[in-house]
């Protein structure tokens, strides 16, 4: 185990030469980047450019075809066993994955559980928290997302915006170091988007969680992130602070993309 000081010094997320193909279709090629602890990074770019695949690879929902991905210094695909580098087993993957939370475009709440059930399921079963503790935390988080009164509702009884708030609370309940946001407002009615984005801004400013977001909300990307990465054709074509990228983009694809998005 690396010492605490060293963990802080090293990047939270490292992509090193990552390749991903679906059949013959190369989605990501030779992708390398790092994200520092506590940094907020937004990924923007046209649909099908591989942004969501990056989050899914980090969450181990997909396997990469080459290169390595590490979180807090630990590889997702390999581990050290008796001093040798060997393929990761389920336990190692679970240990690394414990640091990562994810909020999905379609919420993915469990319909067979109440809101409370969704929030205490993983803390009690994965982190081994006591029921009382998990319940207290669930109440606290639901208050934070403004749904304190809906703890015993079923997910199907909530609006899309409310379901997404519950999903955010559910991810936070696991006390993640890294939070992945996959187009979290794309499935919401327009009038509900602002509320969810405000919630995310509040969480971003009041915690030291590392954020990696895929979004089409340029306003959010601009004021939430420390860094914005423009994706096209499976590559990072521009990587800059939001002030720079949104006002004076260097790459012509970035200019064209921003032009098209803002015009809409």
């Amino acid at each position: 185990m690396p010492s605490l000081d060293k963990t802080v010094a090293e990047p939270m997320i490292v992509f090193d030469g990552v390749e991903k193909r679906f059949g013959d279709n190369v989605v990501l090629s030779e992708l390398s980047f790092t994200v520092a602890p506590g940094e907020h990074v937004c990924l923007i770019g046209p649909s099908g450019s591989g942004k969501t695949t990056i989050l899914r690879l980090l969450m181990t929902l997909e396997k990469c075809d080459g290169g390595t991905i590490s979180v807090a210094g630990q590889s997702l695909s390999h581990m050290t066993h008796n001093g040798r580098r060997v393929p990761a087993d389920e336990k190692h993957v679970r240990d690394v994955r414990k640091r990562i939370g994810m909020v999905f475009q379609q919420f993915n709440l469990f319909p067979n559980m109440t809101v409370r059930g969704n929030l205490i399921e993983a803390p009690t079963r994965v982190l081994g928290m006591s029921k009382d503790e998990a319940n207290a935390r669930a109440t606290e988080l639901l208050d934070l997302v403004g749904l304190g009164d809906r703890i015993d509702s079923h997910p199907t009884q909530l609006s899309g915006g409310q379901q997404q708030r519950v999903a955010i609370a559910r991810a936070l309940a696991m006390r993640p170091d890294v939070l992945l946001l996959d187009e979290v407002t794309s499935a919401l009615d327009p009038e509900l988007v602002a509320g969810v984005l405000k919630l995310l801004r509040d969480i971003g400013s009041s915690t030291d969680i590392t954020f990696l977001c895929v979004t089409h909300e340029m306003g959010f990307a601009r004021d939430f992130s420390d860094r914005v990465m423009m994706f096209d054709g499976g590559r990072v074509i521009e990587d800059a602070a939001p002030e720079k990228l949104f006002t004076a983009p260097e790459h012509e694809r970035t200019q064209a993309f921003l032009h098209a998005v803002v015009d809409r």
């Binding site: 969450m59 929902l61 389920e90 414990k98 469990f110 079963r125 994965v126 696991m174």
Partner: peptide, 25 residues
């Protein structure tokens, strides 16, 4: 599949995913 992915993102074990999330549905 999204339900299984939700369960993976919460780090539930394969057994927990099946028993707690998939089978009840």
């Amino acid at each position: 599949r999204a339900q299984v992915e939700g369960a993976i993102a919460l780090n539930l074990t394969p057994g927990q995913r099946m028993r707690r999330v998939v089978l009840p549905q």
